[in-house]
Amino acid sequence: MNQKNLNIAFFVTTGISVLVFIYLVFLGYDEIKTFKDVIKIIASILFPIPILFFVRLIVIENFMPENTEAYKVENQKPATLFLAITVIVVIIILQILELVTLKKLEDTLILAHLINSTTISSYVFNFLLYNNLKANGVLSGVLMALAIHIFFLSA
């Protein structure tokens, strides 16, 4: 865990995720009436944590590559490609899901919370422990797609 490696991209991504979370809570503010809804939200936030612990236990060998220029150059293209593809694919999937189920994502807020928390925990996990740039691209892509979908496409 090298604290120096926390760069601006990390903070921006985490910030977006927090923003999405706050927005989702506000969006569902009317629906949060009972204790049950609070439990569901807490559960959906906790969901990824045991899985990540399990993954870490299995794959404990430190894969963190030296964050050198060479490593960055080598992975620049595939990572960017992954980012672009994931953003497009996830937005399309979300749109298709809305069309098929005839429901807005806003109606099933738990699902949105689940995607958000799973993605951001995996992102932080990957960033701190493995620093795999390709996985980084995919996870940022999912988060971006979710943010774009929530903020712009389903007004």
């Binding site: 569901k40 807490i42 959906s44 969901f47 045991p50 612990f53 399990f54 738990i110």
Partner: peptide
């Protein structure tokens, strides 16, 4: 042991999210 414990945790969480 780890996989059983993880399974228990996830089972409880999934129940809370989708069925509770």
């Amino acid at each position: 042991g780890m996989s059983i414990v993880t399974g228990i945790a996830e089972g409880i969480i999934i129940y809370m999210i989708f069925l509770f």
